[in-house]
Design a protein around this nucleic acid. Structure first.
Lengths: 204, 204
DNA sequence: TTCTAAAATTGAGTCAATTCTGTTTTTGTG
DNA sequence: CACAAAAACAGAATTGACTCAATTTTAGAA
């Protein structure tokens, strides 16, 4: 009995997301009017608000897809990390950063980040915080793996270190999306330089 | 010839900021309507937009006052830091955090941060980025001071370290303002724990 | 098959930020 | 002082996100 209603619901969700993604891409977040998204998705404005609390949540759904993909890609690195602490971190962070602009433009990232701090209790705000935590956790898992492999000192506070690395990377990424001229290789180089201090401190 | 016009202008700026600060405090950022600010400041809506590009810039002007005060307070620590790396960092960061909620509520911080990433090229967006840089620079100055005092190893990359410490603190602060229940002592303790890793790595 | 309650949809209406255009004030010059 | 250009002001009009009451559709019981 996965009735008609459930199927229609899923279908409308999909149509709304697809329409929004297309319009966000073409016109930017602000430029994509709710009415236009509704028209494109062949639903009414009211229906969109039945599915999403606000415009930001629509963007949020798209961002979540993206970040989950990144988390997935990161698992491979955690499972089989390069046999060198600096390279291991750089590889994982590289995956995050290189993926980041695949589906989402810098403008979309800016909006998503802004919304997540502006409305931390909205569905997307909470989802975004959870995604951040998942990324932090993945970095922590990589550190634990490196400790198990004897590449990182056992007495290091892995949780604190994971937070430190994630927070620094995330802040650098925020600054990166704020400047349209900023380039990925420079971002990665800057983060490598910062992490070098940590790598020196935690290596066996 | 500091004509009437210039004086009236300064006066109107002041009136708008004072009215906005009061209303933001009473009603929150969203709750403070532009019309209400205009009425309270005894100017028209149009005039407000002659002075500020958008509502966010009004908040921005208030935030800038606050952060400049913090920067000022921080100078004392840089000039005469505690004779221990961990305490020195903790003291400086403590000043930032303790000051932070003096004039601005968490809600106002959330809005300010959101706006600065949403509109990085607006007057406030640029000002906010400059303030972040100034804070990073102050942390870097503290590290340089500690190096001069022989408390931090000479071969440490002070610029990268300053960025790392600021970025981590800033990200922690963002998460802090996102959760109304979060308390200052816990925030400080968490940052201390993270910095401990660095302190261990950079001490002589 | 018919009927009713629950769920979902619709789109016109509301609200508040921002824009726009005509008016008023200030300045500097003759 | 009188006047023209420039700057600033006012507030009505626009715009677009979001709400809500009325209508339509679906589920499932009789």
């Amino acid at each position: 009995m996965s009735g008609l209603r459930a199927r229609q619901k899923a279908d409308r969700h999909r149509r709304i997301i697809e329409a929004a993604a297309e319009l966000f891409r073409e016109a930017g977040y602000e430029g994509a009017k709710i009415e236009a998204i509704a028209t494109q998705a062949e639903v009414s404005v009211g229906t969109i608000y039945n599915y999403y609390e606000n415009k930001g949540d629509i963007l949020g759904a798209i961002v979540s897809l993206e970040v989950n993909e990144v988390l997935n890609a990161g698992q491979g690195v955690v499972a089989r990390p390069p046999a060198n602490v600096g390279d291991a971190l750089d590889t994982l962070i590289g995956i995050y950063i290189e993926h980041s602009l695949h589906y989402l433009s810098k403008e979309m990232w800016r909006q998503a980040m802004a919304i997540s701090t502006q409305l931390p209790d909205s569905p997307f705000g909470q989802a975004y915080t959870a995604l951040d935590r998942a990324l932090t956790e993945q970095i922590r898992a990589l550190i634990a793996r490196l400790q198990a492999l004897g590449l990182v000192r056992q007495d290091i506070d892995g949780a604190a270190l994971g937070e430190l690395i994630f927070n620094n990377m995330n802040m650098m990424f925020i600054e990166f999306v704020k400047r349209d001229a900023a380039k990925i290789p420079e971002l990665r180089a800057a983060i490598r330089r910062q992490n070098r201090i940590l790598v020196a401190a935690i290596g066996v």
